[in-house]
Each structure stands twice: as C-alpha cells, then as structure tokens.
Design a binder for these strands. Structure first.
Lengths: 189, 189
DNA sequence: GTCACTCTAGAACGATCGCTCTAGTGGAGG
DNA sequence: CCTCCACTAGAGCGATCGTTCTAGAGTGAC
C-alpha cells in the first residue's frame, strides 16, 4: 500500500490499483475506508510514520559517538537506495511534496507524522547528551537532509547526495556540546 | 507554467489547465510541443533550472564569510516560503519526487538540471576558496538540505526546518579549510 | 487573386479516474 | 431451519485525463 505511494506518489496511484495489489475489490476498500482515497492514504502515511521512527534508535544506538552514527546512518540509507535501483525510500516525503498545497486534510496528516518524528528524534538526541534546543535543531536538520538527499539520489541515480548530506550533518553534530553521557537512559540532572 | 508544477506537481497539473493559464488552446500546445505533456514539463524544468542557478551568486556574493552567507540564504528561503503561504519553492524538487521512478525521460531531464546546479555550485564554491572535493560535497549538502527543508517547511507550515538545516550546513562549511582567496573580490580572511 | 504553410481554436475520442450502487456470499444468533 | 448483517464483488456513473482531429484565420510569395 505504502509501497505504491512511495514509488508513484499520490496522484499517480489509483484506488483501483491499490485494490488490485491488495487483492480486494474497490467496493471493499470503500467499506473499510469511508473517506475514500484520502483516508486510505492517510492510514498508509500514519503506519509508515510509526514504522520508520523505530529505525532511529536501531541505527544510532550501536554507535557510541553520535556524529559517526549519523554519518553511518546516511551511508546505510545511501546503500539501500542504490541496492533497490534508486527506488524512493519515504512515502511521507513523496506524498507531502505532492499534496501540501492542494489537499489540506492530508497535509495535516503528513504534518502530524513529521511532528511525531521530530518529537521522537528530539527526545532521543537529548538522551544522547544534546541540549533540548540542539536536539530539536539536529532532528530537523537530519530530516531535511535525509528527505532532500533521497530526492536528489533518486533524481540522479547516485548515492553522492546522501553521502555528502550525511557528512555535513555529522560534522555539524560533532561541533555541538554534549553533556555527561547517560549510558542507556535519559539524563537526570 | 512552472508555477502550477511547483504547487501541484506533475500528475495533478493537466495540459488543459496549462493551456488555460497560458491563454492558448490545447491544440497550440501540441503544435509547439510535439512530445505532449512530457515535453512541456521538460521545458519548464530546464527553464526553472537556468533561472534558479542565477540566485546562487546573488545570495552569496554579498557575504564575505561563506558560512554566514549560507545560513542567511536559508533564512531568506525560509522567509520566502512563509510569506507565500507555505507555497512550494522548487518545481524541480516536486516533480522529481513524483516522476523519478515512473517517467524515465523526465527523470533524465531533472537529473540534468540538478547536475548543472551541482556543476555551477561547485565552481562557485571553489572560487570562494574551497577545495574542489569540498565544494562539490557542500553543493550536494546544500541542495539536499534545501530541498528537504522546503518539503518539511511546506508540510509543517513552519520555517523551523529550513532554519535548522541552514544552521547545520553553515556550521559544517565553517569547519572546512579555505585556501587563499581566489579571484576578484570574493574573500573573507 | 491563388497557393502553401504556420499556427489558432476547440470539439471529440478513448481511457481512466474516484466513487457509488446493487447483488450476492458466508457465518453467527435465534 | 431462517434471519440478519458485515463484507465481497464488480458493474456502472459522471468527470476529467492526455491526445488527436478537423476547421479556419493569418501571412508572405507569386
């Protein structure tokens, strides 16, 4: 479901196509999602949002140094994009770009998903020793660079944008002050 | 022409709508663009690409320090996005996200536009004293952060993503070595 | 004037869109 | 057994899509 959105975007993905790949007739879709296409897409975005945020600690916990962890995460993303034939990685990004000025309800759903990423990212980075303000700024910077990097990487069929973006954000993070590392839990000053 | 693409994207923008806003009948469009919608969009992308790259020196020449110039440029972009009611800023980004996996010919056009941005940006930054490799990496990082920042800013209706991204890239650039000021009046030390 | 040609103008075409509607199926409760 | 109801199944609706087609206006050469 999110797969098609990821690759084709909102407008190019039809309800009938969704139904076909789901093995269900169109009628059933409208039975379960009274709101039609918009509601189906909203559900897909929310689900994707919930799944993707779980990757954050998985990718970063394994690196003691935050900056190197971030650069490694971007490198992993670059690898993934390349190995899937430059397919898109994030339906939230694709769909948001397409509908932000044109589908107010979906835009709000996308905004909610992004906001949840920002909250989660800020909390995680604060637990890694960044100030709250820095943690929030870094989260936004990472998300911007990641979404933009995905976009350019797909357009150019090259990992270079993602690698460059990762190096930039990583270098930035390395300049930020880190308070006493709090092993596995939130810092408790 | 590019206006509609910017706001609505590729799939949601119809030939008849393009014709209407251009004041021409559909027949005329097919007379001038035998390739149909694809060719019209390709022309719009190429034109936009040529126009946007001219902004680069306009925005950065006025700052003696490259890092502060980049942060200021992101802040300007954030201002613009806010003042236009969170309208999209870059049709190339919107369209690329939508068609990269689905319209090979247009993807190549978009890739060409982006490549020209990268070339121009690399040349400019090298003239400001960065090594060629750094200049290219910074250009990719700036473009990634900018496109991603636009995306998030539109989705969230907030300038925060762009400002955070700008600060990140700026801080990154400030860590890079700058050789003797190259030519003309571009210098900071 | 006539001819050739470019370009305008928009009706019309088939396909496909999101969505609605009716008919039918399957299983739980009485 | 029958009834009820959630759900399946897909035909059909009007609208709109990208595209093609025909008809005619404008212009320069002869």
């Amino acid at each position: 479901m999110a797969e098609l959105l990821r690759v084709q975007g909102y407008a190019a993905t039809g309800i009938q196509q969704l139904a076909r790949t789901a093995g269900a007739p169109t009628g059933s879709i409208y039975h379960h999602f009274k709101g039609g296409k918009r509601e189906v897409v909203a559900a897909a975005l929310r689900q994707t949002g919930a799944v993707y945020i779980q990757l954050l600690p998985l990718l970063l916990d394994q690196h003691a140094d935050l900056a190197t962890g971030i650069e490694a995460a971007f490198a992993t993303a670059a690898d993934d994009v390349g190995h899937t034939g430059w397919a898109n990685m994030c339906p939230v990004g694709t769909v948001t770009g397409e509908i932000a000025d044109v589908e107010p309800e979906l835009r709000e759903v996308a905004a909610g998903v992004i906001a949840s990423w920002v909250d989660e990212g800020t909390r995680y980075l604060a637990s890694r020793g960044l100030s709250d303000a820095d943690a929030r700024a870094v989260t936004y910077a990472v998300l911007s660079a990641l979404e933009g990097g995905f976009l350019l990487a797909r357009g150019q069929r090259s990992a270079e944008p993602l690698l460059a973006a990762g190096r930039a954000i990583s270098t930035y993070v390395a300049t930020l002050p880190v308070t006493a590392p709090a092993s596995a839990e939130n810092q408790s000053t």
